[in-house]
């Protein structure tokens, strides 16, 4: 599996003409874990979702090349995309409170994902759902399978979401700020679980976050986005060698126990970064 993005731009029509949200982004992804960091509105979610062609209706996407394992996503129609979505690449959204269907039980939603791509009976699907819930380390999978999303905690909901996206055994998992809506204590658990499952299944991962150290901890490579551009790409271990002032600024804002600073610096943004 190989994802290639060349010169991707995504724009939205506004009253004053087209507004560019993603500006000529190029990325390649093999069987590895790629982190995309950046602040809100930097275009990281749009970039990742463009691989599945799940952009808002009004978005206009152009690129020199956008392929998923050789399949041209740019020219693919809905039917062709459905062969990728779920089956070969899953998407985990931020808040399970909104991203799970409130009127279907957790089990139904997982079984649906399983059945859509694996052609099995209803009972098989239900058993698979319970098995998947156990794989995401839920103690009482049968009970959780019968529960509706509003009866689950945020962490539980995100486990259900992970189980659902892993059901068809995809090659790539896109996690769009999977822990931002969770308590700090649960965040680490969910990330560790995801990383464990991804590694064990030999899947590729795109982890979107605004937490630079966290991403570098879980990923092989980190792309830093700012105002719709990838400003810097680094190996996870090379954060200290970051060159771009934005990345450096982000790192310097971080308090650390080992190097306490009396006062944290405030990032000064250079308009030149936008050019």
């Amino acid at each position: 599996m190989q994802v290639e993005i060349q010169n991707l731009s995504i724009a939205f029509p506004t009253a004053s003409g087209m507004s560019l949200a993603v500006r000529s982004v190029s990325l390649t992804l093999g069987n590895e874990k790629l982190g995309i960091v950046g602040e809100s509105g930097s275009g990281k979610s749009l970039t990742a979702r463009s691989i599945l062609k799940l952009l808002p209706r009004s978005a206009r996407m152009t690129a020199d090349k956008l392929t998923f394992d050789g399949i041209d996503v740019l020219s693919a129609n809905e039917n062709a995309m459905r062969a990728i979505r779920g089956k070969r690449a899953g998407l985990i959204l931020q808040d399970p409170k909104y991203s799970l269907n409130p009127v279907m039980t957790a089990g139904e939603q997982i079984a649906e994902a399983w059945r859509t791509h694996r052609r099995g009976g209803k009972r098989e699907a239900r058993e698979a759902a319970i098995d998947l819930l156990a794989q995401v380390k839920i103690n009482d999978p049968a009970r959780v399978a019968a529960a509706y999303p509003h009866e689950l905690s945020g962490g539980m909901g995100q486990r259900v979401m992970i189980a659902m996206m892993l059901a068809p055994d995809p090659e790539l998992l896109i996690a769009d700020e999977p822990t931002s809506a969770l308590d700090a204590t649960v965040q680490a658990e969910i990330l560790r679980l995801m990383e464990d499952l991804v590694s064990r299944r030999g899947m590729a991962l795109i982890l979107i976050s605004h937490d630079l150290p966290l991403v570098s901890h879980f990923c092989d490579r980190v792309a830093v986005m700012y105002a719709g551009r990838v400003v810097e790409e680094l190996g996870a271990g090379e954060l200290a060698q970051a060159k771009h002032p934005y990345t450096r600024g982000l790192l310097e804002c971080m308090p650390a126990l080992s190097h306490p600073k009396p006062r944290l610096p405030v990032m000064t943004r250079d308009p030149a970064w936008l050019v």
């Binding site: 809905e78 649906e112 996206m165």
Partner: peptide
């Protein structure tokens, strides 16, 4: 406009 519709599409379900 709900997020769960994006989830459903991401699962590869038919329109």
């Amino acid at each position: 406009a709900g997020e769960y519709v994006i989830t459903a599409r991401a699962k590869g379900l038919s329109p």
